[in-house]
């Protein structure tokens, strides 16, 4: 269904002309809207007796000529990246452990792990940050890192578990019949495959993690958002609120878009390497990928299917 033209006959000259006209009209409307927004923001505002300069006036942006402001912002970016990096490493490690425990054969291990995962998956990260902050009084940095690590660790663990369950049963049977032990088969044969299969989903989850470091704003960790929107804006005054917001927005966009592109590239690469015939890679969207993996796992469980249906065939 990626090619919608199957649905209707090829458009004739009149339909094509109509589509072109509509295209131009929307383009004009969108550009006009943006222009209007720009003009409204840029127009000087009367406030009581004084006239405030427009939002794009030079006097509102002059702080960005000061290198110290940029060092300050750089410090915030570094704090964001530092928290995200440490939390990602811990989250992946935790996810690996949880997925192994979750797919253990012993129900005394498997079921409590499942409950723990469900518990952490269903809770807001912010609540966990507050919990760590108040109960363990670890300081803001570890509250942010700890909460992000636990929450995303639970999600990654569930993704890896689904990846393990979606593997063809033959893999495990082959490993066992070669004389490997349960644990050997899991660590040497099944887990590496599941990890590779789920790698795009894990990276997509790490994009979410990077975005969620901004919650540090609420618990008082001086990451990018707090640096710009709280420290800098109270230091320089409210009139820099809008410019500071725009700069923060652009920095976040740059960071997250590059990571998202990396995730997409990775997903394409793994897709083409492991399934040369399949065109569409596994889904980048974490939840969607999870559902597909779960469905595959079910198909494995329920029937004689050897799991040769590539998940990539279902985008």
């Amino acid at each position: 269904m990626s090619n919608a033209s199957v649905l209707f006959d090829a458009p004739g000259p009149r339909a094509r002309a109509l589509s072109r006209t509509l295209s131009v009209i929307t383009a004009v409307l969108v550009i006009g809207g943006l222009l209007w927004m720009f003009l409204v923001l840029n127009s000087p505002k009367e406030s009581g007796d004084i006239t405030l300069p427009g939002m794009f006036d030079e006097s509102r942006w002059d702080i960005f000529a000061n290198p110290e402001v940029w060092t300050f912002i750089g410090q915030g970016v570094w704090n964001t990246l530092r928290a995200a990096l440490v939390a990602s490493v811990l989250a992946v490690a935790l996810g690996v452990v949880l997925s192994l425990l979750r797919s253990a054969r012993n129900p005394w291990i498997r079921i409590p792990t499942a409950v723990v995962i469900e518990f952490f998956r269903g809770m807001p990260v912010l609540l966990m940050m507050l919990f760590i902050l108040l109960v363990f009084s670890t300081g803001d940095y570890w509250a942010v890192v700890g909460a992000l690590a636990i929450y995303n660790g639970a999600l990654i663990g569930e993704a890896l578990r689904a990846g393990l369950a979606a593997l063809p049963r033959g893999q495990r049977e082959a490993a066992l019949s070669l004389g490997m032990r349960q644990l050997q088969s899991k660590m040497l044969v099944e887990f590496p495959q599941a990890f590779r299969q789920m790698l795009p989903i894990i990276v997509a989850q790490l994009v979410v993690l990077l975005k969620d470091t901004s919650l540090g704003f609420i618990v008082g960790y001086p990451e990018l958002l707090r640096t710009t929107m709280n420290n800098l804006s109270s230091f320089y005054g409210n009139r820099y609120l809008f410019p500071l917001w725009v700069v923060t927005f652009l920095i976040y966009l740059a960071m997250n878009l590059s990571l998202s592109w990396f995730a997409r590239w990775l997903s394409r690469r793994t897709a083409s390497r492991y399934r040369p015939s399949g065109k569409g890679g596994p889904p980048v969207d974490p939840t969607q990928g999870m559902l597909v993996a779960e469905a595959m796992a079910d198909a494995n469980r329920s029937g004689s299917s050897t799991g040769d249906v590539a998940p990539g065939s279902r985008p």
Binding site: V207, K211, S214, L215, L225, Y252, N256, S260
Partner: peptide, 11 residues
């Protein structure tokens, strides 16, 4: 999609 929710809320 690539903007943190906190940033949208601040706006």
């Amino acid at each position: 999609r690539n903007t943190p929710l906190t940033l949208v809320l601040i706006f």
